[in-house]
Simulated assay, not measured.
Amino acid sequence: MSANFDMDALRAMVVGVELGSFARAATQLGRSQSAISMQLKKLEEQARRPLFRRDGRGLVPTEAGEALLSYARQIIALNDEAAAAVGNSAGAATVRLGLPQDFFEDVMPEVLGLFSQQRPNSHVEVRAGRNYVLEEEVQAGRLDVALAFFKAGSSTSGAHVATLPLVWLAAETMRRPGPAEIPLVLFDHPCLFRQTALQTLDRQRLRRRMALTTPSLPG
């Protein structure tokens, strides 16, 4: 008999993976962490195979989890579209917004608060993702708008909003670059900031080593 996946559990899975943290997913969805854990366990029971594996302090999808994740996004999009079509959204307009994880803790709460005050009948659905993924999601119609970083002069389908400087961050005790290798903490590939940092060091002929790589800000 085919599995009948729970919609709320699928949504918890998608939000948790996109935010890089199921604790953050619990906050965004208004549920407890234990409730999210139970929903993920329920999904694995329905799938009859592991969907996640532990990686450090977090969970990452297995091969089966990645496959289900792709379908989950489509199922949720169709569900929300159907709900809006039959009026279950109570007349509220839904804006699907994509953002890099950089904005979630510092920028998003204040901006969404102001937006809610100005558009009280609107519903904002926020998704986190890498820059290139956000652009693809907009082009595919799965996001209405996204804010993403791109290198100056690169060809994108979006509009230029602002230019921001890149800076190096280091401990106060770190010495100026010398013959020793510079330890780096970077996002894993592909990443615009990673690429720019490595190219800059190469131009300066400075030696470096990867001290830590991470797929997201929470690690």
Rank of each mutant, 00 (worst) to 15 (best):
D55T: 10
A64V: 02
N79F: 10
R53L: 05
E66C: 14
V86F: 09
L59W: 05
E81Y: 13
R49P: 02
T62L: 03
Y71K: 15
A64S: 13
A72M: 04
N88M: 13
A67H: 11
A77G: 13
Q46H: 05
A72V: 08
L51W: 03
L40F: 01
N88F: 14
P50E: 05
E81K: 14
G87C: 11
E66W: 15
L43F: 07
A47F: 00
R57H: 13
Q74D: 15
A84S: 13
P50T: 04
L51V: 07
V86Q: 10
L68H: 00
R57C: 09
A64Y: 00
R54W: 04
A67E: 12
R57M: 10
A47Y: 00
G87L: 10
I75F: 10
R53H: 08
G65L: 11
G58V: 01
I76P: 00
A67S: 11
I75Y: 08
I76F: 05
D55M: 11
N88T: 07
G87M: 05
G58R: 06
Y71N: 15
T62S: 11
R48K: 14
G87Q: 06
K42C: 08
G65K: 06
K41P: 00
I76S: 05
G58H: 08
R54H: 09
A64K: 03
G87S: 03
A83S: 15
S70K: 15
R49M: 07
A83L: 15
L40T: 01
L51E: 01
M38A: 10
L68P: 01
L69N: 03
G65D: 00
R54S: 04
P61W: 02
L59I: 08
Y71C: 06
L59K: 07
Y71F: 09
F52S: 00
L78C: 06
L68I: 02
M38F: 05
S37D: 01
N88A: 12
V60Y: 02
S89T: 13
R49H: 12
K41V: 09
A84T: 04
A82L: 11
R73C: 04
I75Q: 11
L40M: 09
V86Y: 03
E81N: 13
Q74L: 15
L40A: 06
V60D: 03
I75D: 11
A72Y: 00
G58E: 09
A67D: 13
L43N: 09
Q74T: 14
A47W: 00
A85K: 09
I76N: 01
S89K: 05
A82D: 09
G87A: 02
A72P: 08
Q46S: 03
T62M: 04
L51N: 01
A47L: 05
R48A: 09
G65I: 02
A82G: 11
Q39C: 03
A77I: 02
L43A: 07
A67G: 14
P61D: 04
I76E: 04
